[in-house]
Simulated scan of single mutants.
Amino acid sequence: MYVYINGEVIKKEDVRISPFDHGFLYGLGLFETFRVYEGHPFLLDDHLERLNEGLRLLNIEVQYNRAQVYNILKTLLKKNQLTNAYVRFNVSAGNGEIGLQTDVYTEPNLIIFMKPLLSSLEIAEKEAILLKINRNTPEGSYRLKSHHYLNNVLAKREIGQEPESEGIFLNADGFLAEGIVSNLFWIKDGVLYTPSVNTGILNGITRQFVIRMAKNAGIEVIEGMFLTEQAESADEMFLTNSIQEIVAVSKFGGSQLPGNRGLTVKWFSSNYRMQRRKLWSRNGMLLEGLSEWKKK
């Protein structure tokens, strides 16, 4: 595998970063993960918008744009002989003295790597299992997609490696938050529910895409503070992230759910697949109507 690092494309075995990088020493780094479908980086503009906002907050003096990143991705895809790929775009603060720094970081490290993925994946069903460990609170006023992943790692150890399961966090106040690597949605009586970002969750790019998709289709969306019992009465439930896309839930708590057979989940998945080879941002989506789709 070939990796991009600070302007060079080199073999992964040759990648080196300094132990004095503050992304390593103090967790001052951000990343985005997204998929490339037949050469197209789906929702790249949205990922870069979130990344750039986080970089400003961390005082890392760099911003990235579509043209710049797309050129790097095309080079990496060609070098790795890929047209469909998982991409991790990682920015760390760069080298500094030992000790906490308040000055601007002016020489960050950019590392981009990718691995192959199939152009289309069967939508896997998962069982959503409540975790004993709570979701930690964000380090700042809201959660960044940062290097601070110990909470997620401990949660993954609690639930194990089974790919058919996803752990669901409650926050410290007992409200539903998010999955270990996903955001949570459910449908009840035609309304789409999802935990608010005020619970401390990451505002996922696919989460934002699904909310926009629902609103564009005239589906009512309620973001709020929800207890477990409110989700257990759901008609359908699904999880989202940028790699696994939209994953139906077949069981949550004591409730059996329709999983992949759910009509609304099928509609979201169908429209997602329809957009993923062309959209740069959620703002540009076109939808097949839900009522028309259900008649098929």
Rank of each mutant, 00 (worst) to 15 (best):
I112H: 04
L154K: 01
N260Q: 10
K145E: 02
N171D: 02
N65I: 14
E178V: 00
D235E: 08
S119M: 11
L263N: 13
S250W: 06
Y70S: 14
Y193R: 01
L279N: 08
K115G: 13
E220W: 06
R143Q: 08
T240Q: 09
L28E: 11
D46S: 09
E97R: 15
E97T: 13
F113T: 11
T102Y: 11
N171A: 04
Y193S: 04
R277V: 08
L279M: 14
P108Y: 03
S255K: 13
D103P: 07
E220K: 01
E229V: 09
F34W: 10
K294A: 14
L44P: 09
E232F: 11
I180L: 03
I17S: 10
L28C: 07
Q63N: 12
S233M: 10
I60D: 03
L184M: 12
E288N: 10
G224M: 05
A214W: 03
W267T: 03
I219R: 00
N95Q: 14
N151M: 00
G94E: 00
N216F: 04
T240A: 08
K78E: 11
N52C: 11
I129G: 01
V87W: 09
E232P: 03
K296C: 12
N95T: 10
L43R: 06
T194Y: 02
L44T: 08
D14L: 15
T106S: 11
Y70D: 13
E61C: 10
E166N: 00
G204R: 00
R207A: 14
R276W: 09
L257M: 07
G200A: 05
K78L: 15
L77H: 05
V210H: 02
E288P: 08
L76S: 08
I133Q: 04
L28D: 08
G99I: 03
Y142R: 13
I201C: 10
L290N: 01
S120V: 12
Y70K: 12
M285D: 04
A128Y: 06
V249S: 08
D21V: 05
R207V: 06
V69I: 07
Q256S: 15
D235V: 00
Y193Q: 00
H40R: 05
